[in-house]
Design a protein around this nucleic acid. Sequence first.
DNA 1: CGAATGACTCCTT
DNA 2: CAAGGAGCCATTC
Length: 102
Amino acid sequence: MNQRIWQVVALIPPGKVATYGDVARHAGLPGAARRVGYALRQLPAGSRIPWHRVINAQGRISLPAGTGGEYTQRERLEAEGVAFIGGKIPLRSYRWHPGAST
DNA sequence: CGAATGACTCCTT
DNA sequence: CAAGGAGCCATTC
């Protein structure tokens, strides 16, 4: 199941982001946004899963401060071209749409 | 099986 | 915009 979520997260294109709810929905788990966070938490350190492209519906980083994860995620996103406006990401522009790549 | 928890989301005030 | 409450699903004890 986690693999299911990781798979969806893995196909998120760079420079774009998706919300937990969106990932859950595309993973076939509508309403399981929490499951996404849970799965990402179980995500191995050596995984190639761009978990940093997953954020909450507020366009903000949900990672708990103290683990430094919030910092890493922001750094990675900015490195991919994602901008933090007012401390958050404008989902209106960066929200990932499956199949909308081309 | 029952109760508690969590990288969540939506609605109302 | 900020804060509070309820719903959601799976994992863990």
